[in-house]
Simulated scan of single mutants.
Amino acid sequence: MSDLSAKEKEIVKFAFSIYDFEGKNEVDGVYLGDVLRAVNLNPTDKQVAEQGGTVRKKDKFFKVDEFFKMFSEIKKDKDSGSYEDFMELLLTYDKMEDGHVVLTELEYILNNLGERLEKYEVDGVIAELCPEPDDDDMVEYEPFVMKLTKGLKK
């Protein structure tokens, strides 16, 4: 816990308190991923499970001191992907080397690489972050990656 700044501790306590629905100074493990995302982290479902997150309510509860440790560990994790990582990946799909990829290939990447997303999740990400495709169904990927990684440490 000593590696957290006073501001980080304050932010973590506030987010934690929002998910302390019963006022018992604890959060249900089913909301662990939500709390981590509320403090601007981007854990995968696997990371949440590794930290003790649950899929059923009332299986496990966490105190704020336990959450500080989880916050620190997830914050240090380098596997969350950066702007550079995403750009490098998409360059391999950029056949014309002009900053564009076929929309269906972008959907394939989101659906199959890394932590698998459901079709409705991919559709939501595309609708929210992706520029309109051109007549050839090509999209410019840099604006998409910029929106996708906004707020992530590079």
Results as ranks from 00 to 15, higher is better:
residue 14 F to G: 02
residue 15 A to C: 13
residue 15 A to S: 15
residue 16 F to A: 11
residue 17 S to Y: 04
residue 17 S to T: 12
residue 17 S to K: 13
residue 20 D to P: 09
residue 20 D to S: 03
residue 21 F to P: 01
residue 23 G to A: 10
residue 23 G to N: 13
residue 23 G to H: 14
residue 25 N to D: 13
residue 26 E to F: 06
residue 27 V to I: 15
residue 27 V to M: 03
residue 27 V to C: 07
residue 28 D to N: 08
residue 31 Y to R: 02
residue 31 Y to K: 02
residue 33 G to A: 07
residue 33 G to I: 10
residue 34 D to W: 00
residue 34 D to Y: 02
residue 37 R to F: 12
residue 38 A to W: 02
residue 38 A to D: 13
residue 41 L to C: 12
residue 42 N to W: 02
residue 43 P to R: 00
residue 43 P to M: 04
residue 45 D to T: 02
residue 48 V to D: 06
residue 48 V to Y: 04
residue 50 E to R: 05
residue 50 E to S: 07
residue 51 Q to V: 00
residue 53 G to Q: 00
residue 53 G to C: 06
residue 54 T to P: 03
residue 55 V to G: 12
residue 55 V to E: 13
residue 55 V to A: 11
residue 56 R to V: 07
residue 58 K to M: 06
residue 58 K to H: 10
residue 60 K to W: 01
residue 61 F to E: 09
residue 61 F to V: 15
residue 63 K to M: 03
residue 63 K to S: 11
residue 63 K to E: 12
residue 65 D to E: 14
residue 65 D to Q: 12
residue 65 D to H: 09
residue 66 E to S: 10
residue 67 F to M: 07
residue 68 F to H: 14
residue 68 F to V: 06
residue 68 F to S: 05
residue 69 K to F: 08
residue 71 F to K: 04
residue 71 F to Y: 15
residue 72 S to M: 09
residue 74 I to F: 03
residue 74 I to N: 05
residue 75 K to A: 15
residue 76 K to S: 14
residue 79 D to F: 00
residue 79 D to H: 03
residue 81 G to H: 04
residue 81 G to S: 08
residue 82 S to C: 05
residue 83 Y to L: 15
residue 85 D to S: 07
residue 85 D to P: 04
residue 85 D to F: 07
residue 86 F to G: 00
residue 87 M to H: 09
residue 89 L to M: 15
residue 90 L to E: 05
residue 92 T to W: 10
residue 93 Y to E: 01
residue 93 Y to G: 01
residue 94 D to V: 10
residue 95 K to S: 15
residue 96 M to T: 13
residue 97 E to C: 12
residue 97 E to Q: 15
residue 98 D to W: 13
residue 98 D to M: 09
residue 99 G to N: 12
residue 99 G to P: 10
residue 100 H to D: 01
residue 100 H to W: 11
residue 101 V to Y: 10
residue 102 V to P: 00
residue 104 T to A: 09
residue 104 T to C: 11
residue 106 L to W: 11
residue 110 L to E: 07
residue 110 L to F: 15
residue 111 N to G: 13
residue 112 N to P: 05
residue 113 L to S: 02
residue 115 E to D: 10
residue 115 E to P: 08
residue 116 R to L: 14
residue 116 R to P: 02
residue 116 R to V: 10
residue 117 L to P: 00
residue 117 L to W: 06
residue 120 Y to I: 08
residue 120 Y to Q: 11
residue 120 Y to T: 11
residue 120 Y to C: 09
residue 122 V to A: 11
residue 123 D to K: 14
residue 123 D to N: 15
residue 124 G to T: 05
residue 127 A to F: 01
residue 130 C to I: 09
residue 130 C to F: 06
residue 130 C to G: 12
residue 131 P to Y: 09
residue 131 P to E: 08
residue 131 P to G: 08
residue 131 P to A: 07
